[in-house]
Design a protein around this nucleic acid. Structure first.
Length: 730
DNA sequence: TTTAGGG
DNA sequence: CCCTAAA
């Protein structure tokens, strides 16, 4: 991460001489963070990534026809509403990505690829071209797509929007600043896309460079390094002046939490990814988005968090949920290739490389949705994918896909429409080491959609499509299971993973998982057999929150950001600015800490319905609002502990000034409260603790400081003579 | 406003 | 985090 650091001297000039020093043992280790970067990361391309990448390229080249290059602006044809919605979604996605970055490095790449690949297939008829710069290649012509998919023009817009979102996500992932800075726009996305696609495996730094052009507002931090890519201060004005103090064993130095500009609202919007992003987009969007759109957007937001709030489902009484079955049908067989083109297909393409010649045509595909049941007069419809009610099948015959892996291994996948999502059939291929897989179907995460009763069927279709696109486009990632175990190492070759051409592929399975939710693997490594659990994780994914639900999406963002906040010696107190890039996580412990941190935080935040982009105004715009929850990051805790150790427990204002002067969202009351909770936390068993784990070391210090200062207080208070005191203490 | 605590 | 009594 790149932080600007300033001398700490200004802060703690007199620190060392301060009152009492804590008897604590200096922890030299603290604050030391190996910044070494993971080299392996990103260098090795996992087979799937490779596939995806190749597929994307092929599609791009061979199929360039799909889209027209024009799309620098995702929303060209889209109606303003759509655009807006999508943008919002994008925000969400971006946010998710951020999380994702932390929680799954290896997976990220795949996800990214998926996005890219996915996008391409969608548009088909179009120009063929590759645009010189390739920057626009990604964005397809909405029109073409519309024809291909359906008659509803609306769909087109949706698609486009979706693309934009995906881009956003990607961009965000690699170049947080771009997103936060608000520089992210359709154009930016367009530009980013190509780069991403082609340079996908590049290291973060490279990515940064590629994305660089996008940075409008922000200049690359001087210190940008590969590691820092992920976390960069954004928004020029937002670049925080952070202070970092190397911790001094006894005293003179202090931690200061950087000021965060955070006024959630006022900040240029960079502060909270989602919030900021939204704002950034808004300008471009036209107001008046339909409820459906909103809903969709909400849904999208929801996608990230695996868990939902109780409230999520109980939106307003006026809505009821209607389960839906959503399925794709192959409408036509093209070229006798039986190519099924569903969105899934496109998604699938990320995994599978199709021969250029055999590219499936999406044009005639139609999506059908079946309404299974309706409840009263409700607006809300619940669509369940896969395991719940609907099943999506993807099929393409003989779509041989080849991709060259590092080891020159080629894999061919054949997906047939089927019933079982995990079933595979392996077909033998001559003698080469090619693996042929047949994916009968994918399970799709549940999707919740809310739509007004008055909406037209067309709009419903459109909504559903959007939702699906949203999910497929950015909310999912693919999981690979082998023999019931999740193959987490994306860098493994198929061969290494035991997936060989002569093996029974029945043992191989794929799953669609929300890429926003913390990956189970991170949460509970031991449980490798959660293939089925994937579903659970996935389920909440697609929920669409009611548009009107009051939203505090800002909260979500903020929280997440905090969660992501790196545990670094120098706490950058800002609420925003914390974007992590794969490169950012270098030290193992750091990484682990981060990932864990995310877990608790993300869910909570997201759940709060925060994801809903609701009109802020709606809910008491004034001040009655409860402040958004912003869990203390480890860095903040450390800063707090340090300050309290030095100042004591009764001088919260001073503590604030000393260590959180720049963190506007942390009041002395907050610090006091936090201390209270820390003391409590330290006194309970680790198993009972929740949220981002606080290093035991810090907790120990908390207890020590608490004890120490309590004692000091006791001494002064009673004014008892030293003797008495001694006696008492004894 | 700041502390200190309960909610 | 919020709310408040007290200081």
């Amino acid at each position: 991460m790149v932080f600007q650091k300033r001398s700490s001297l200004e802060m703690e000039s007199g620190g060392g001489s301060h009152v009492a020093e804590m008897p604590r043992v200096p922890k030299s280790a603290r604050g030391k963070r190996s910044i070494r970067k993971k080299e392996s990361q990103g260098q090795v391309m996992c087979a799937f990534d490779l596939l995806a990448t190749v597929a994307g390229k092929l599609l791009d080249e061979g199929e360039g026809s799909l889209g027209n290059a024009s799309s620098g602006t995702p929303a060209v044809d889209a109606s303003p509403k759509d655009v807006r919605v999508k943008q919002e979604q994008c925000d969400e996605e971006a946010k998710h990505f951020k999380n994702e970055v932390m929680d799954q490095d290896s997976c990220n790449e795949s996800a990214l690829v998926s996005h890219i690949a996915f996008q391409r297939p969608v548009n088909h008829n179009g120009r063929k071209g590759e645009d010189p710069e390739g920057s626009h290649a990604v964005i397809e012509d909405p029109k073409a797509k519309s024809e291909a998919l359906d008659k509803e023009s609306s769909m087109i817009s949706c698609t486009k929007a979706e693309l934009g979102c995906s881009f956003a996500a990607i961009t965000d992932r690699w170049s947080p600043e771009s997103v936060e800075s608000g520089a992210f726009t359709g154009d930016a996305a367009a530009i980013a896309m190509p780069a991403t696609t082609s340079g996908f495996h590049k290291n973060a730094p490279d990515m940064y460079n590629l994305l660089d052009p996008m940075d409008v507002d922000v200049k690359p931090p001087p210190l940008v390094s590969s590691d820092s890519t992920g976390e960069m201060p954004l928004y020029g004005n937002k670049i925080r002046r952070s202070t970092s103090f190397p911790r001094v064993p006894k005293g003179g130095a202090g931690f200061t939490v950087d000021r965060d500009e955070d006024d959630d609202d006022k900040s240029s919007g960079c502060t909270h990814p989602s919030t900021a992003t939204n704002r950034g987009f808004r300008p471009n969007c036209t107001a008046g988005h339909s409820r459906v759109k909103k809903l969709l957007a909400c849904k999208h937001r929801k996608v990230a968090p695996a868990r939902m709030h109780k409230g999520d489902l109980s939106y307003s009484g006026e809505h009821c949920e209607i389960p839906f079955t959503f399925s794709f049908f192959e409408e036509n067989c093209i070229d006798g290739s039986h190519i099924q083109t569903s969105l899934l297909y496109s998604y699938l393409s990320s995994l599978i490389l199709l021969d250029v010649d055999r590219k499936p045509s999406f044009r005639n595909k139609k999506m059908y949705y079946t309404r299974q049941r309706t409840q009263r007069s409700t607006f809300k419809r619940r669509k369940m994918f896969d395991r719940h009610s609907a099943q999506v099948s993807e099929e393409y015959a003989k779509a041989n896909t080849k991709f060259a892996a590092r080891d020159s291994q080629t894999v061919s996948l054949e997906a047939n429409k089927g019933t079982n999502s995990t079933a595979f059939q392996k077909s033998h291929e001559s003698s080469d080491c090619h693996v042929k897989l047949r994916i009968k179907s994918f399970k799709v995460p549940e999707l919740l959609i809310e739509i007004p009763e008055t909406a037209t069927v067309g709009s419903l279709k459109k909504t559903v499509l959007e939702a699906v696109n949203a999910i497929l486009g950015g909310g999912l990632r693919v999981g690979v299971l082998h023999h019931g175990k999740k193959v987490r190492d994306d860098n493994k070759t198929l061969m290494q993973a035991g997936i060989s051409h002569d093996e029974v592929l029945d043992n191989l399975g794929f799953s669609l998982e929300p890429n926003c939710a913390p990956h189970p693997s991170q949460l509970s490594p031991p449980e490798d057999n959660e293939f089925m659990e994937t579903v659970d994780t996935t389920e909440p994914l697609a929920r669409i929150a009611p548009a009107d639900s009051s939203s505090k999406h800002g909260e979500v963002d903020a929280s997440q950001e905090l969660a992501l906040a790196p545990l670094s010696a120098n706490y950058q107190g800002s609420d925003h600015d914390f974007v992590h890039s794969p490169g950012g996580m270098s030290s193992p412990d750091k990484a682990s800490t981060n990932s864990r941190a995310i877990v608790p935080v993300t869910p909570a935040d997201s759940n709060a319905g925060a994801i809903v982009p609701a009109n802020k105004a709606k809910r008491s715009p004034e001040q009655g609002q409860r402040r958004i929850r912003r869990p203390f990051s480890v860095a903040e805790v450390e800063a707090l502990v340090l300050a309290v150790e030095k100042l004591g427990t009764g001088r919260w204002r001073d503590v604030k000034l000393r260590a959180f002067d720049n963190a506007k969202h942390r009041t002395y009351v907050d610090l006091k409260d936090k201390w209270k909770t820390l003391v409590h936390t330290a006194s309970i068993s680790p198993q009972q603790r929740r949220g981002e784990p606080v290093p035991q070391e810090l907790l120990d210090r908390v207890l020590a400081a608490q004890a120490y200062w309590s004692q000091q207080q006791a001494k002064l208070q009673p004014k008892t003579p030293p003797l008495a005191e001694a006696l008492l203490l004894t």
